[in-house]
Design a protein around this nucleic acid. Structure first.
Ligand SMILES: [Mn+2]
Ligand SMILES: [Mn+2]
Ligand SMILES: [Mn+2]
Ligand SMILES: [Mn+2]
Lengths: 219, 219
DNA sequence: ATTTATTTTTAGACTAATCTAAATTTATTT
DNA sequence: AAATAAATTTAGATTAGTCTAAAAATAAAT
């Protein structure tokens, strides 16, 4: 098996590779994992020796199919546990990420499959992120955000691009939870802040910072 | 917080202290944790520095109230997870110990309490071991075993003293699960093996090795 | 009461993961 | 094209946990 640390590196590389499309830099990994570049170099060499990443000095790193498979299975675990915590144990969506960060490393194929079944094979986690299936297939998000909407257009909240407690808490406070209906009333062009109505009732004003991290489905 | 390793040592010391009643020897810890005596000495000094155990060289070790509290809370976690795995995810009683050994180290008061509530505050784990409550109070077992029963006496299986897969599997195969009713038919005095009927039907022959590890309630 | 055996501790070494500081390579400016 | 800046790697240390082999303390046997 692999250590927690190795698994967290693989997950980080997966995330960065997906969002940038290219080979992943040492510094970007260090930033994401809040560690130092020199530590990253050490770990990369180790993962490279295990054939989990391909690596050329100074040229960045990318996952091998094997490394990618491990990364996806950890993400699957993470998101299933998040669903469990919210759906079954009544945690709020801003409380589950850190716990799932630990639970994801409990190694058991069987546990994962039984958990998936117990949760009735959910497709999305509490933040709207898609849950990879048993074979590692992930539905990909279109990533249309509220910031892409125009006045008079209607949309539904389907996810978030930012997972911080403070952001999720803020969304809660203005009613922008998963499934909320939004109509754009007005957009201020100097700062791109938006006035919207949530679920046809309360009218709120939100910054571009907020709208660009809220994934929606147009309707 | 404490590391997995520290927590496993505390749990081991708790178990040994309870079963022997006296200070715990270095070798007994090493045996239980399948490590070397020298490693144990190192860890004991560390736990002692943290005031989790009291320790005098060559005189053995015992838990401080603080160390005992941590040990009990991990055991509480362990047993709640075992209940979850068996009751909710349909694992068999011989499959859950290793998984709970990992899950017990996920640190969250809140998770433990919510899990306890979700499981409807169980009093015993799938092996009949009592689950400590929120304040660390544990109901103690009387530890009457099937080996203490006499011919014609009836009893019910309430727990096991041995948790190995092979033992639990064997019990399954002869129907000696939690709640099974046993009547002792005959005891062979040369090897103390027993003939018993299980749930009033199948008659089986079991060794002393088996009967002395089966905790029962006389009835 | 010595000797012998067992238990426990120490000394020194190893691996995993991390860090700081220095060296090297690559990228960007002038 | 040379100089400067930024990114990356290396060198050398550190901490947690472990191990083997040797020394010291305690227990058991003669
Ligand atoms: Mn998450
Ligand atoms: Mn993690
Ligand atoms: Mn454990
Ligand atoms: Mn148990």
């Amino acid at each position: 098996m692999h250590s927690f640390t190795e698994e967290n590196y693989l997950k980080a590389i997966f995330k960065l590779e997906k969002s940038s499309g290219a080979a992943v830099s040492t510094n970007s990994i260090a930033d994401l994992l809040e560690t130092k570049a020199s530590s990253v170099t050490d770990m990369i060499r180790k993962l490279s020796d295990k054939k989990l990443v391909s690596y050329q000095k100074y040229k960045g790193v990318s996952l091998t199919p094997k490394g990618k498979g491990i990364a996806i299975s950890i993400i699957r675990n993470h998101r299933l546990w998040e669903v469990f915590l919210v759906e079954k144990l009544d945690f709020k969506w801003d409380e589950v990420h850190e716990l799932a960060e630990e639970l994801e490393h409990v190694h058991s194929e069987k546990l994962t499959e039984k958990l998936d079944q117990f949760l009735d094979y959910p497709k999305y986690d509490p933040h709207g992120d898609p849950i990879p299936d048993k074979n590692g297939n992930v539905v990909q998000h279109k990533d249309i955000t509220l910031a892409d909407m125009l006045p008079k257009e209607n949309s539904i909240v389907v996810g978030v691009k930012e997972h911080s407690k403070s952001y999720l808490n803020y969304l809660d406070s203005v009613g922008l939870i998963l499934g909320a209906q939004i109509e754009v009333i007005e957009i201020a062009d100097f700062d791109r802040s938006m006035t919207v109505t949530v679920d046809g009732q309360n009218k709120v004003n939100i910054s571009h910072q907020v709208s660009k991290n809220l994934i929606v489905k147009k309707c």
